[in-house]
Nucleic acid binder design. Sequence first.
DNA 1: ATGGCTTGAGTGTCAAGA
Length: 255
Amino acid sequence: MKIATWNVNSLKVRLPHVLDWLATQQADILCLQETKLEDKVFPAAEIEAAGYRVAFNGQKTYNGVAILSRHELSDVVRDIPAYDDPQKRVIAATINGVRVVCGYFPNGQEVGSDKYAYKLKWLEALTNWLRIECANYPQLALLGDFNIAPEDRDVHDPAAWQGKILCSESERAAFAGLQKLGLADAFRLFEQPEKVFSWWDYRMMGFRRNQGLRIDHILLSPPLALRCSSCLVDKAPRKLERPSDHAPVLAELAP
DNA sequence: ATGGCTTGAGTGTCAAGA
């Protein structure tokens, strides 16, 4: 089973890329972030025509998440339960016995800002909820745009990013807090090349110079980590015309 | 030099992303 995550930075603009990528990769599950679409205009018909079922949780202009699946989705949950938040950042569903949680983590803008405080609160709420979710669902996968580079090796220029947003101590501690729930970073289960990133700034030719960060992740509970046979970033869609600034991250789970 | 692109909203140009 192939599971993946991709921040598409507007599904309206990126739908052709998404459909092409699904056809190429034959992914079973794709979690999307930054769809930026209200539910009433979500392109469900086009996605279903491609052979996928879909659940979504969106809003106008900002945020918005979705889970696309070749298999049936059940027990869909939208937003973090008991956490009051108008921003549409979370959707979860059970697929083939796997609890799939799709998250678009807050950016945080700048360390010390109001948005940074919101990011840390949000991370705490997510972690508290996932502690319960992990107990209820031994097979759990957390996929999404975490907006956290977990370690210096996930950053093209660690010195320049030292202590900055996406790399600060508190954000990395929150990432470690998710790992403490038993969730493993699928990418780091395997030997990987150096300087693999999942996001590159549109400006300054960031992609061509590989000036990026690894901030999109797939975290797996212990039984799923045992089943995981590979995890990679697919840079191909980032090379297309009008790409998202993020590339998809893909993991393979043995049956 | 805190810029640089891209998107959405909306028709000026700004907010937000990371």
